[in-house]
Amino acid sequence: MAIGQTSAQMALRDPDIRLMLRVREDDTAAFTELVSHYQHRLVGIMHHLVGNTEEAEDLAQEVFLRVYRNRKKYTPQAKFSTWFFTIANNLALNALRNRNRKPAVPLSASDSGPLGIRPEEQLVRDHGATPSFGLRQAELADRIRSALDTLNERQKMAVLLNKFEDMSYLEIADVMGLTTKAVKSLLSRARTRLRDALAGYVLMDGEEHPAADESEVEGD
């Protein structure tokens, strides 16, 4: 397939487009390179979204499957990563919606509702029990994951693309099929929510941590 002038210009700027154009021409080595190049980023994002490795790898494999199956129709119109993560976004959000319709685990009754204790409630409980000053990185990572789980799927996807893929609002809008204004609003809500959920773990200059005060009181 001949490469048009615009495609050629884009391919010059984006090495991944050049790689995908080789995949389009049935270059197996190029596809292997593409998988190798994107697997960590894709599995990472999927893992943050679905919360377990096996499911994340299944979804990531499905994304690569679609890329390969549709290689002949690929035409560079934007950065390759935008096209790639658009497929990933649609697959992931559909899978999550599908999962929400069919809960995989039996639900237990709880004061916090049918899904059990909410992540923000867990944060509040744990915060009271554990001084965050001495919190190890792994524990802090758990708190952050819990905070991320307080976001809805779209907020979480927007945060992941912005934070870990370093995507601009425009690119996120392309990937998620939204306007840049909607992305701006989505990210604003998400970041406010994260800040509230992690308030106990983010200290401001000159601000004393409540846990420090508690330990002083206990010491008296």
Partner: peptide
């Protein structure tokens, strides 16, 4: 506070695919 919350997300470990993921996928 918004910026610090954003920065703290860097602590999250990047989940890695299994060693056989790429070969299985290809």
């Amino acid at each position: 506070s918004l910026q610090r919350t954003w920065d703290i997300l860097d602590i999250l470990p990047q989940p890695q695919p299994s060693a056989s993921f790429a070969s299985r996928t290809v």
